[in-house]
Design a protein around this nucleic acid. Structure first.
Lengths: 112, 112
DNA sequence: ATAAAGCTTAACCAATCGGTTAAGCGTTGT
DNA sequence: ACAACGCTTAACCGATTGGTTAAGCTTTAT
């Protein structure tokens, strides 16, 4: 398993949880404190803290401290890793499906 | 947690494993028997069978039987689910980052 | 100086994961 | 008829997950 595989494992793993995806959705609106982030969830602070660590490990967010408040904001690296894998695969995949359609004589292979 | 969340959980979970991603990569070359699929892996047949069930549950592949051979092929639904989520989020995200760049007076907000 | 706020770390728990071996089941070859 | 093939299901195992509570640590407020 090479370096890239581990990155992909961590990113997809991080995204495979509703709470973590919810946190990312929140952060689209900009940097936020951890207190605010946890507000919608009926979950203890340590639980949120763990989710954030997983998102951080996957390079989906980064954290910073101002006074006693900890802040989180989005990072592009993680999402790019995931998107690259998906797009690469879906492109090849689609090509094959188009070829199959052509072979079967379908009328509009592009119009799927 | 709504229906869509469960779908996303299952797709991202399925993709968060090197073996399972490897299987998908193989299947880009077209439909294949399960025997052939397991060949590159030093893993028992039941282990592969489990991975395939997880990929199936996520609508990433579908299985069929011809005689005593079981075949697998790719499906578009699962990958589309994942890509839609990612693209939606990266779009919003990028917009915000561009806005931030503009605010900071960077020269080429599109050229990232 | 002390208390409270805002979070993290540590220790623990049940449930799930990724693998195993053993057994089963339909299909094919002899 | 029966053995081998191709794969799945069942039962089991240690490790990891997602949550908990209790304790700790730094910063702010009184």
């Amino acid at each position: 398993m090479n370096h890239h595989d581990k990155d992909l494992d961590q990113v997809f793993f991080a995204l495979a949880d509703t709470t973590r995806r919810g946190i990312l959705s929140q952060l689209i609106n900009g940097k936020s404190t951890i207190g605010k982030i946890s507000q919608p969830y009926s979950m203890s602070a340590p639980a949120i803290s763990k989710h954030l660590r997983i998102l951080e490990r996957a390079n989906l967010i980064k954290r910073s401290k101002i006074g006693r408040q900890h802040h989180c904001e989005l990072t592009t690296a993680g999402l790019k890793t995931a998107e690259d894998w998906l797009q690469f695969h879906r492109e090849f995949w689609k090509t094959r499906l188009d070829a199959l359609d052509a072979l079967l004589g379908k009328s509009d292979p592009k119009g799927r």
